[in-house]
Design a binder for these strands. Structure first.
Length: 706
RNA sequence: GGACGAUUAGCUCAGUUGGUUAGAGCGUUGCAUUGACAUUGCAAAGGUCACAGGUUCAAAUCCUGUAUCGUCCACCA
C-alpha cells in the first residue's frame, strides 16, 4: 500500500468498477424491501454547485439501505429548466451579437436543444465524481417524450376537472425577458420611491406611479371617510397633463384613510390592488403600458417612452401645470423584480392558463397533517402550511420557447380553446372550423418537475418501477425549494395518484461561502465543489459537509474541516497499512469477516473481547443516528471512535502483543468500521477493502448487525 | 406587518424524549516521537451555554419576554 492515500489514483477506477458491476441498480438485492429516492433533477445545462454536493445525504441513505439488503433505487434525472436555460442561452447569443428575436421558434428551440445536449454530460460526470451511487441505467430527462406525454395528460385532466382555466388577469411580466412569471418567482426589494401628491380636481391623491395615470378609470376613497363622502358616486372634472377629463369616485374598503390623503387612483391594468377594486366596481381596464415596456398611444405625447422616462416627463409636465402639490422623496416601498434579470416587473393584463390551487393545496395540507408525509426538520411544516393556506392561483404559462409547449389550441373562427393530451386536433369541437392555432406559450418548468416522482417512475425503463417504488421513501432536497418544488409535487402527485408522492421530506441547508455569505455569481464567491474534490478527494468533501452540521442547518464552507476530513481519511488508510504490514510479516495472520457473536467466542484476550463489545455498541449508535437522519452525529461518532478510541487506544494496545487470535479480532473489527464508514466515505473504504483482500465488495456487503 | 432560524471556548460548529466535572475540529502552550500516520501521540490553558424571569430535586436543553444577527413570506397607493 502507498504510504499516503492518493484519492486521484482511486476514485475514478472504483466508481467505474461499481457501475460496471451493476451495483447501483436495485436489482443487486433481489427480493429486498423497496427503498427509493428520486434525485432532485439538476438543470441539464448547468454545472453543479454546492447545493448539489449536499445530495451526499441521499447517497448515504441509499448506500446504508443497500447494505441492509433493501432494493435501493436512487433515480437520476435532468431538468430542462425552461426559462433559466433560455436565459443562459440568450446570454450566450449576446456574445455573438445576436438575440432571441433573430430566430424563428423552431430554430431557436433546436439551437437550445443542441446547447443543452452538449453541456449535459458535464453535470452527470460531476455527480459521478462525488461518488453518488445513482442508477444511471434509469436516468430520465424532463423532455423525454414519455415524460412530456405524462405532463400533457395531467394538464388535460386538470382542465377537464375544471382545475385549469384561462383568464385575462394581471400577471408579473418582465418586459426585458418577455415572459410572465408566477408569484413565487417575484423577488421583492425595498426601494426609495418618491410619493407624488397629485391634484385631481378638488381632490389630492398620493401615488408612486404618476406615469400610469393615463390608465386611471376611477378614484377611490374609504366609505367611512367623512372627508370625501360628498364625492362618492360622482364624476369629477379634472385637469390633466393631456387636458381636461372626467373621472368617477368610488368607495372601497381597500383604501387606508391614514395613508397619504386617503384618496387612491385606480389603475386596474397596472396594479394588482386596483385590478381587484375594478372587479368589485365594474370598472374598465385601460392598458397604457405595452409588453415592450413602453407607453402606448393612450399616453398621448408620452407614447413610445419607456416607463422610467415617462415618469420623469409626466412629473415635469405636471409641475409646470401646477398639478403636483408636494413630493415625499423619502418614501420607501417594496417593488417586484425579475428574479433572473433583476429588472422591475410590470403588472400587465395577459391571458394565461391558471391552476386553481385551492383544492390541490387542501389535499397537500391534509397529507402532512395526517402524517402521510413526515417533514424533517419539523419546523418546515409550519412554513409549508402557511404558504399553502395563502396560495393564489398559479400562472403556468410562460412566453418562452424552451419548454413543453402547452397543448391548447385556439379556434380562429369561434375563439374557443381546445385542450388535448398532446394531439393536434383536426377541427374545432365547437364550430368544426379547421383553423386552429396552438398556444405559443410553454409550461412553467415547475409544472412539469412538480410531477417528477410519479412521472419518472411511470416512464421508467423497468415497467414495474411505479408499482414497486411509489410513493418514494424520502424526498431529500434543499430547503430553498420547499415552495417551488416540494409543495407542488405534493399537490400534483396526490392529484394524479391519490397518494402522497413520498413518505418523508428531508431538507438540507445551504452551503455558504467561508464567511457565511450566500454564494452567488454576482458576488463572485462561488466555489466549485469539483475543485475541492480534486484537491481533497470526494470522501473528504463528503465527510466535511456532513460532519458538524446539524440536519437542515445552513453551513459555511470550511477549509479546516475539509483538511480535517482529509487527514481522517489518511488516518484510516494508515490503520489499514498497519494491518497489512503485520500480515506481510507473518503468513499465519488472516483477514476475514465475522459476526459479533462469532468474534466474542473467538476472542481469547479480555481486552480484545472488550473491543468487540465496544464496536458492537458503535454499530447500534451509528445505525440509530442514520435512521433518525442525524448524519452529523453518526459522522462525529465514527470519527471519534475510529481515531481516538480504536486507533489511539486499541491499536496502540494490541500493537506489541499481537498474535494470531488478536490479529483476527483486530482485522475483523476494522472491516466492520469500514462498513460503517462506507456510506460517508465510499471510495477509500472500498479501496482499503480491496487492498486488504476482503472477499466481497464493500458497497454490496451486509451492514453489520449488533 | 407576519413567520422561521441562530446566539455555546479565540474561530467554525455539535450537543432531539431535561440528568454526573458542557464537547469536537482548527488555533494557542508544553512534552514526546520518525513511528502504521507528508506526521502522529500525550497533556494543558480557554466557556456567567445572548440577556431577564419562570417551571423542576435537576435547565445549554422546557415555558414567557427582551436584544442582536440572518432567512423567508405579504397587493398598502
Amino acid at each position: 500500500m502507498d504510504k499516503v492515500y492518493e484519492h486521484k489514483n482511486v476514485e475514478e477506477k472504483i466508481y467505474k468498477d461499481w457501475e460496471e458491476k451493476g451495483y447501483f441498480a436495485p436489482e443487486v438485492n433481489p427480493g429486498g424491501i423497496p427503498y427509493c429516492i428520486i434525485l432532485p433533477p439538476p438543470n441539464a445545462n448547468a454545472p453543479l454547485h454546492f447545493g448539489h454536493a449536499m445530495y451526499v445525504v441521499e447517497d448515504i441513505l441509499i448506500r446504508y439501505h443497500r447494505m441492509q439488503g433493501d432494493a435501493a433505487l436512487w433515480l437520476p434525472g435532468a431538468d430542462h429548466a425552461g426559462f433559466e436555460t433560455q436565459f443562459v442561452f440568450e446570454k450566450h447569443l449576446q456574445k455573438d451579437g445576436k438575440s432571441r428575436f433573430d430566430y424563428d421558434r423552431e430554430t431557436l428551440y433546436k439551437m437550445i436543444w443542441d446547447f443543452v445536449q452538449s453541456n449535459r454530460g458535464g453535470m452527470e460526470g460531476q455527480l459521478r465524481k462525488l461518488g453518488f451511487s445513482l442508477d444511471w441505467s434509469r436516468k430520465k430527462f424532463t423532455l423525454d417524450p414519455d415524460i412530456v406525454a405524462i405532463v400533457y395528460k395531467t394538464f388535460k385532466k386538470l382542465y377537464d376537472d375544471g382545475l385549469i382555466y384561462r383568464a385575462n388577469r394581471l400577471v408579473n411580466y418582465c418586459t426585458f425577458d418577455g415572459t410572465s412569471f408566477s408569484d413565487l418567482e417575484v423577488v421583492h426589494q425595498e426601494r426609495k420611491s418618491p410619493l407624488y401628491y397629485i391634484k385631481y380636481g378638488p381632490l389630492v391623491l398620493a401615488t408612486t406611479r404618476p406615469e400610469t395615470k393615463f390608465g386611471d378609470t376611477a378614484v377611490a376613497v374609504n366609505p367611512k371617510d367623512s372627508r370625501y363622502k360628498e364625492y362618492v358616486g360622482k364624476d369629477l372634472d379634472i385637469e390633466t397633463v393631456l387636458g381636461s377629463a372626467k373621472i368617477k369616485v368610488v368607495a372601497d374598503e381597500m383604501v387606508d384613510m391614514e395613508f397619504g390623503t386617503g384618496v387612491v387612483k385606480i389603475t386596474p391594468a397596472h396594479d394588482f390592488n386596483d385590478f381587484e377594486v375594478a372587479e368589485r366596481h365594474n370598472l374598465s381596464l385601460k392598458q397604457v403600458i405595452g409588453f415592450d415596456g413602453k407607453m402606448n398611444e393612450y399616453a398621448g405625447k408620452f407614447a413610445g417612452l419607456y416607463i422610467k422616462q415617462a415618469r420623469a416627463a409626466v412629473v415635469e409636465e405636471m409641475q409646470k401645470k401646477g398639478l403636483i402639490e408636494k413630493i415625499d422623496e423619502s418614501y420607501v416601498n417594496r417593488i417586484g423584480l425579475c428574479y433572473k434579470c433583476k429588472n422591475v416587473l410590470e403588472p400587465l393584463p395577459l391571458e394565461q392558463w391558471f391552476v386553481k390551487v385551492k383544492p390541490l393545496a387542501e389535499n397537500a395540507i391534509k397529507v402532512v397533517k395526517n402524517k402521510k408525509i413526515k417533514i424533517t426538520p419539523k419546523n418546515f411544516e409550519t412554513i409549508y402550511f402557511q404558504w399553502l393556506e395563502n396560495l393564489r392561483d398559479w400562472n403556468i404559462s410562460r412566453q418562452t420557447v424552451w419548454g413543453i409547449r402547452i397543448p391548447a389550441f385556439k379556434c380562429e373562427k369561434c375563439t374557443k380553446w381546445i385542450v388535448t393530451d398532446g394531439k393536434v386536433p383536426e377541427k374545432c369541437a365547437n364550430c368544426n372550423s379547421n383553423k386552429l392555432i396552438q398556444d405559443t406559450d410553454t409550461f412553467d418548468t415547475w409544472f412539469s418537475s412538480g410531477q417528477w416522482p410519479f412521472a419518472a417512475l411511470r416512464a421508467s425503463r423497468v415497467s414495474t418501477d411505479l408499482k414497486t417504488f411509489y410513493p418514494t421513501s424520502v424526498m431529500e432536497t434543499g430547503r430553498d425549494i420547499l415552495f417551488f418544488w416540494v409543495a407542488r409535487m405534493v399537490m400534483l402527485g396526490f392529484y394524479i395518484t391519490d397518494e402522497a408522492p413520498f413518505k418523508e421530506v428531508l431538507f438540507h441547508g445551504l452551503v455558504n461561502d467561508p464567511y457565511g455569505r450566500k454564494m452567488s455569481k454576482s458576488k463572485g464567491n462561488v466555489v466549485n465543489p469539483l475543485e475541492l474534490v480534486d484537491q481533497y478527494g470526494a470522501d473528504a468533501v463528503r465527510f466535511a459537509l456532513i460532519y458538524g452540521n446539524a440536519t437542515g442547518n445552513d453551513q459555511a464552507l470550511s477549509y479546516t474541516k475539509l483538511d480535517g476530513a482529509r487527514k481522517f481519511a489518511n488516518k484510516l488508510w494508515n490503520m489499514a497499512r498497519f494491518i497489512e504490514m503485520k500480515r506481510v510479516q507473518s503468513s499465519k495472520l488472516k483477514v476475514k469477516s465475522y459476526e459479533f457473536e462469532e468474534l466474542l467466542k473467538e476472542a481469547k484476550n479480555e481486552t480484545d473481547k472488550e473491543w468487540v463489545k465496544k464496536t458492537q455498541g458503535l454499530v447500534s449508535e451509528v445505525s440509530k443516528y442514520i435512521d433518525n437522519y442525524q448524519f452529523n452525529l453518526a459522522a462525529e461518532r465514527l470519527y471519534e471512535f475510529i481515531w481516538h478510541e480504536f486507533a489511539d487506544k486499541y491499536i496502540e494496545d494490541v500493537k506489541n502483543r499481537i498474535d494470531e487470535n488478536s490479529y483476527l479480532i483486530l482485522a475483523a473489527l476494522y472491516l466492520i468500521l469500514l462498513k460503517l464508514l462506507h456510506p460517508f466515505m465510499p471510495f477509500i473504504t472500498e479501496e482499503i477493502n480491496k487492498q486488504l483482500g476482503f472477499s466481497q465488495d464493500l458497497i454490496i456487503s451486509a451492514w453489520p448487525h449488533d
